[in-house]
Amino acid sequence: MGVGITVEQLNAYYGKTQALFDINLNVLANHATALIGPSGCGKSTFIRCLNRMHETIPDARVEGKVRIGDLAVYNGTSATQLRRRVGMVFQKPNPFPTMSIYDNVAAGLKLNGFRNRKQLDEIVEKSLHSSALWDEVKDSLHKKSGASLSGGQQQRLCIARALSVQPEVLLMDEPCSALDPISTGKIEDLIFQLKEQYTIVIVTHNMQQAARVAEFTGFFLLGKMIEFDKTEKVFTNPSDKRTEDYVTGRFG
């Protein structure tokens, strides 16, 4: 089951540059929350703070409180422990190129020391079913490399890989920006189904996509969260002039 996310007074920096300013946010469990905003507004930085991926960049640091379920993200939890509970899907599909489809999905468990072959088989199959890829790859699980799949399939493979470690939260950083409309539609349908079991936070440049998949939408601008509300409110009658200008395309 998914868990909620609470963010209080989050500030993030790249060296001396501040990328996020005093972000406060509550993400409801088992809902999809979309983050929109122009490039460089901090929305990707924000979700990378949620699983402590931000700090893998040299000189990057974070201040503030983040709670994922009952876990205090920046207080006494190790990054690796946290990341097993918070899956992430990236902008460009990034399967491990030298691994088979099976090994790609099993990688998270195997590399964390999980060895039970039978259970691994089950989890791999279940994860691939969840990401709607099973039927397309079941005959070449061990024969083909993850990199041999099409872009859309690769992204669904990455989703399966993220699901295999059974996280509670799924972070998606522009998961469809490199995909064609058909693949995008499949991933959106998937997000709809995955909401039942996971809490989803999705960063997207495609506003229609945010409107389609998410119940809540946050608008970021210059490192600040300008507006956070129900998606339909943000897209039909936003409260802030800047949000309105952005969603109507008058921005800039």
Binding site: M53, T80, Q81, R83, M88, N94, P95, A162
Partner: peptide, 14 residues
Amino acid sequence: PQAIREAAYGLGVS
């Protein structure tokens, strides 16, 4: 690519 390392970090791999 850094993305490959991030994919592994994202799975909680040390």
